[in-house]
Amino acid sequence: MDQKRHIPFNSVDLTSLISALLCLINLGSTLAFNIIVSLSLLALLSNYTISIGCILYRRLWHPAALPPARWSLGRWGVWINAAGFLCSIWAIVWCCFPATLPVSGTGANYGPALWAGVVVLAAIVYVVHERKHHTPPVIYIEGRRAAGMKFIGISY
Protein backbone atom coordinates (compact mmCIF):
# COMPACT_ATOMS: atom_id res chain seq x y z
CA MET A 1 0.00 0.00 0.00
CA ASP A 2 1.43 3.33 -1.03
CA GLN A 3 0.98 5.43 2.12
CA LYS A 4 1.03 8.74 0.24
CA ARG A 5 -1.57 7.94 -2.42
CA HIS A 6 -3.46 5.18 -0.53
CA ILE A 7 -3.35 2.91 -3.58
CA PRO A 8 -2.43 -0.79 -3.42
CA PHE A 9 -0.05 -0.80 -6.39
CA ASN A 10 0.73 -4.53 -6.10
CA SER A 11 -2.98 -5.34 -6.46
CA VAL A 12 -3.37 -2.93 -9.37
CA ASP A 13 -0.32 -4.40 -11.14
CA LEU A 14 -1.47 -8.01 -10.63
CA THR A 15 -5.00 -7.19 -11.84
CA SER A 16 -3.59 -5.44 -14.91
CA LEU A 17 -1.33 -8.39 -15.69
CA ILE A 18 -4.16 -10.92 -15.37
CA SER A 19 -6.39 -8.75 -17.56
CA ALA A 20 -3.69 -8.50 -20.21
CA LEU A 21 -3.18 -12.27 -20.18
CA LEU A 22 -6.92 -12.87 -20.49
CA CYS A 23 -6.98 -10.61 -23.55
CA LEU A 24 -4.45 -12.93 -25.22
CA ILE A 25 -7.09 -15.67 -25.21
CA ASN A 26 -8.67 -13.93 -28.21
CA LEU A 27 -5.62 -14.89 -30.28
CA GLY A 28 -6.33 -18.59 -29.73
CA SER A 29 -10.10 -18.81 -29.58
CA THR A 30 -12.74 -16.18 -30.19
CA LEU A 31 -15.34 -18.43 -28.55
CA ALA A 32 -13.32 -18.63 -25.30
CA PHE A 33 -12.86 -14.85 -25.33
CA ASN A 34 -16.60 -14.27 -25.87
CA ILE A 35 -17.40 -16.63 -22.98
CA ILE A 36 -15.05 -14.79 -20.64
CA VAL A 37 -16.40 -11.38 -21.65
CA SER A 38 -20.01 -12.56 -21.31
CA LEU A 39 -19.35 -14.21 -17.95
CA SER A 40 -17.57 -11.12 -16.61
CA LEU A 41 -20.33 -8.83 -17.80
CA LEU A 42 -23.04 -11.02 -16.30
CA ALA A 43 -21.19 -11.14 -12.97
CA LEU A 44 -20.75 -7.37 -12.92
CA LEU A 45 -24.35 -6.67 -13.87
CA SER A 46 -25.58 -9.20 -11.30
CA ASN A 47 -23.58 -7.38 -8.65
CA TYR A 48 -25.10 -4.04 -9.69
CA THR A 49 -28.61 -5.47 -9.79
CA ILE A 50 -28.37 -7.06 -6.35
CA SER A 51 -26.74 -4.00 -4.76
CA ILE A 52 -29.12 -1.48 -6.27
CA GLY A 53 -32.08 -3.79 -5.61
CA CYS A 54 -31.20 -4.03 -1.91
CA ILE A 55 -30.88 -0.25 -1.60
CA LEU A 56 -34.15 0.25 -3.50
CA TYR A 57 -35.91 -2.30 -1.27
CA ARG A 58 -34.67 -0.51 1.84
CA ARG A 59 -35.61 2.92 0.48
CA LEU A 60 -39.16 1.85 -0.37
CA TRP A 61 -40.11 -0.51 2.47
CA HIS A 62 -37.68 0.14 5.35
CA PRO A 63 -36.37 3.71 5.00
CA ALA A 64 -35.40 4.01 8.68
CA ALA A 65 -33.01 1.05 8.34
CA LEU A 66 -30.59 2.90 6.03
CA PRO A 67 -27.62 4.52 7.79
CA PRO A 68 -26.87 8.17 7.06
CA ALA A 69 -24.71 8.67 3.98
CA ARG A 70 -22.01 11.22 3.17
CA TRP A 71 -24.05 12.40 0.21
CA SER A 72 -27.53 11.79 -1.05
CA LEU A 73 -29.38 11.73 -4.35
CA GLY A 74 -32.14 13.64 -2.60
CA ARG A 75 -35.74 13.21 -3.67
CA TRP A 76 -34.61 11.68 -6.98
CA GLY A 77 -32.79 8.82 -5.24
CA VAL A 78 -35.60 6.29 -5.52
CA TRP A 79 -36.15 7.08 -9.19
CA ILE A 80 -32.44 6.90 -10.01
CA ASN A 81 -32.11 3.59 -8.13
CA ALA A 82 -35.18 2.20 -9.93
CA ALA A 83 -33.79 3.28 -13.33
CA GLY A 84 -30.40 1.72 -12.55
CA PHE A 85 -32.05 -1.51 -11.38
CA LEU A 86 -34.22 -1.79 -14.51
CA CYS A 87 -31.30 -0.90 -16.79
CA SER A 88 -29.16 -3.60 -15.19
CA ILE A 89 -31.87 -6.23 -15.64
CA TRP A 90 -32.37 -5.13 -19.26
CA ALA A 91 -28.64 -5.45 -19.91
CA ILE A 92 -28.50 -8.91 -18.25
CA VAL A 93 -31.23 -10.14 -20.59
CA TRP A 94 -29.38 -8.87 -23.67
CA CYS A 95 -26.04 -10.30 -22.50
CA CYS A 96 -27.52 -13.80 -22.60
CA PHE A 97 -28.15 -13.79 -26.34
CA PRO A 98 -25.73 -15.49 -28.75
CA ALA A 99 -23.17 -13.47 -30.67
CA THR A 100 -24.25 -14.66 -34.12
CA LEU A 101 -27.28 -16.02 -35.93
CA PRO A 102 -27.93 -18.79 -36.79
CA VAL A 103 -26.70 -20.25 -33.53
CA SER A 104 -24.10 -22.98 -33.86
CA GLY A 105 -21.80 -24.72 -31.40
CA THR A 106 -19.07 -22.16 -32.00
CA GLY A 107 -21.39 -19.15 -32.04
CA ALA A 108 -23.43 -20.01 -28.94
CA ASN A 109 -23.15 -17.93 -25.80
CA TYR A 110 -22.04 -20.27 -23.03
CA GLY A 111 -21.58 -17.40 -20.55
CA PRO A 112 -25.07 -17.68 -19.01
CA ALA A 113 -24.62 -21.43 -18.39
CA LEU A 114 -21.28 -20.84 -16.67
CA TRP A 115 -22.77 -17.92 -14.74
CA ALA A 116 -25.59 -20.16 -13.48
CA GLY A 117 -23.00 -22.77 -12.52
CA VAL A 118 -21.01 -20.21 -10.53
CA VAL A 119 -24.20 -19.04 -8.77
CA VAL A 120 -25.12 -22.64 -7.85
CA LEU A 121 -21.56 -23.32 -6.64
CA ALA A 122 -21.58 -20.13 -4.54
CA ALA A 123 -24.94 -21.11 -3.02
CA ILE A 124 -23.57 -24.55 -2.11
CA VAL A 125 -20.46 -23.03 -0.51
CA TYR A 126 -22.66 -20.62 1.45
CA VAL A 127 -24.98 -23.36 2.73
CA VAL A 128 -22.15 -25.76 3.61
CA HIS A 129 -19.60 -23.37 5.13
CA GLU A 130 -20.17 -19.62 5.04
CA ARG A 131 -23.55 -19.63 6.76
CA LYS A 132 -21.82 -20.47 10.05
CA HIS A 133 -18.38 -18.90 9.53
CA HIS A 134 -19.01 -15.66 7.61
CA THR A 135 -18.36 -12.32 9.32
CA PRO A 136 -20.43 -9.55 7.70
CA PRO A 137 -18.47 -6.39 6.81
CA VAL A 138 -20.52 -4.24 9.17
CA ILE A 139 -19.60 -6.38 12.18
CA TYR A 140 -15.95 -6.40 11.07
CA ILE A 141 -15.85 -2.60 10.76
CA GLU A 142 -17.72 -2.06 14.04
CA GLY A 143 -15.23 -4.35 15.80
CA ARG A 144 -12.23 -2.54 14.35
CA ARG A 145 -13.76 0.84 15.17
CA ALA A 146 -14.36 -0.30 18.78
CA ALA A 147 -10.69 -1.35 18.94
CA GLY A 148 -9.66 2.18 17.88
CA MET A 149 -8.28 1.23 14.46
CA LYS A 150 -8.29 3.83 11.69
CA PHE A 151 -9.70 3.26 8.24
CA ILE A 152 -8.23 4.98 5.22
CA GLY A 153 -10.83 7.08 3.44
CA ILE A 154 -13.63 6.37 5.92
CA SER A 155 -14.77 9.14 8.23
CA TYR A 156 -16.97 8.49 11.24
Rank of each mutant, 00 (worst) to 15 (best):
S19I: 14
A108T: 00
V127K: 12
V119Q: 13
L39N: 05
V78D: 04
N47L: 04
E142D: 12
P68N: 08
S155N: 07
C23G: 13
N26C: 11
V128F: 04
C54H: 11
I139K: 08
S104K: 13
L21Q: 15
S11T: 10
H62G: 03
G74E: 03
A69R: 14
S72Y: 02
V119W: 14
T100A: 13
S29P: 03
H134N: 12
S155E: 09
Y156R: 01
R131L: 11
I18A: 12
L73T: 14
L27H: 00
T100E: 13
S29E: 04
T106D: 13
G117M: 06
I36L: 15
T49G: 12
S88Q: 05
G105H: 03
W79H: 12
I36P: 00
R144A: 09
P8W: 03
W90Q: 09
T15G: 10
C23T: 14
A20I: 02
P67Q: 09
I152A: 13
C87T: 15
A113V: 15
I92K: 06
L73Q: 11
L42H: 01
G117Y: 02
N81E: 09
L39T: 05
Y156W: 15
C54A: 13
R70Q: 11
A83V: 07
A108N: 06
I55D: 15
M1W: 08
